[in-house]
């Protein structure tokens, strides 16, 4: 379920807010269809992949859905706990990114439930960059695991799952191509970032991330960045030593806001990336759109603060 509010009139927003809460209450009371495979995607991009592969044979509950929010401050509610309690298949990111999932799972033990934990699948360890969905190749592997699992539970439709998986992988091709093309042209291009969200893709593009890692972590954790680092990043922007400024437009705290102002003023093209999947886009479209934004920024100096 994704409900997004536009930045319009106060009254309208209040009304839709009340509507959203009512809708939510209705959702939690709704009965689950027992003929379907119950699945949970801890983040909406995993839920999207489950939906694309399972089609009408699965019902999918996404927990982190809003592209305008910070997952680190997420608090579980009973709707999520119920969805986890009745799930046959759970796909989660792991690496502490969605620690609430492990809590919800432990609270509702269920025999025969399958959990796909992306961090474990890729052999990562706590302390590694958790934004695995930005790593090209992640979703192909996760899609395979989802398709295998669904086929095992519902062999009658195994062919359909496999076909959907293949279709999904094909849908990623334009994104992978875009990465390959951009990499050839822009390898080694210096860029600045605020948080580590986009770093896996940035590395795949061969971009040279000039922001100190400790600065990125300070911003992500809401801590004080060191003055020398603030000054270094400021200089990168004011002297236009970087070709683009990539920021997480979901958590614009004061440090980011200030650097954003500076980037605009110094006419360094800015790119707002999303931590979770924006409404109205598939995973493949979202990933491709952000690589296109990088391409636009580096080629013609155009900013993309929000995806359309």
């Amino acid at each position: 379920m994704t409900v997004t509010l536009e930045h319009t009139h106060t009254g309208l927003r209040l009304a839709s807010l009340a509507g959203a809460v009512a809708l939510l209450a209705a959702c939690s009371a709704a009965k689950v269809d027992s003929s379907k495979i119950h699945t949970v995607g801890a983040e909406n991009f995993y839920a999207d992949v489950i939906t694309q592969i399972g089609g009408s044979h699965v019902d999918v509950h996404a927990i982190l859905t809003n592209p305008n929010t910070d997952p680190h401050s997420y608090e579980s509610n009973t709707t999520d706990a119920s969805a986890v309690a009745s799930a046959d298949l759970i796909v989660e990111n792991g690496l502490g990114y969605d620690a609430f999932m492990q809590k919800l799972e432990a609270a509702s033990p269920r025999a025969g439930r399958t959990i796909i934990n992306a961090g474990q699948v890729f052999g990562k360890h706590p302390g590694d960059d958790p934004h695995l969905w930005y790593l090209p190749g992640t979703m192909q592997r996760i899609a395979q695991l989802i398709a295998d699992e669904l086929s095992k539970r519902d062999p009658a439709n195994a062919k359909e799952y496999e076909a959907n998986r293949a279709k999904f992988v094909v849908s990623l091709a334009p994104w992978m191509d875009a990465i390959a093309t951009a990499k050839r042209k822009y390898q080694g291009t210096p860029v600045a970032v605020t948080e580590p969200v986009f770093n896996y893709t940035a590395s795949a593009l061969g971009l040279d991330i000039r922001t100190p890692v400790s600065f990125q972590l300070a911003v992500e954790e809401g801590n004080d960045p060191a003055p020398q680092e603030v000054s270094a990043v400021t200089t990168l922007l004011s002297t236009k030593s970087v070709k683009s400024f990539i920021y997480n437009q979901q958590t614009v705290e004061p440090t980011t806001a200030r650097l954003l102002d500076l980037a605009r003023k110094s006419s360094v093209p800015v790119i707002g990336v999303y931590e979770t999947q924006p409404a109205g886009m598939t995973y493949a479209q979202w990933m491709k759109a952000e690589v296109d934004a990088v391409q636009r920024a580096l080629q013609s100096g155009k900013s993309t603060e929000k995806l359309p």
């Binding site: 927003r13 807010l17 859905t65 809401g222």
Partner: peptide
């Protein structure tokens, strides 16, 4: 809770 699902906020 509301903003985690519906709107953005200042941190």
């Amino acid at each position: 809770f509301i903003q985690t699902r519906y709107v953005s906020q200042p941190a």
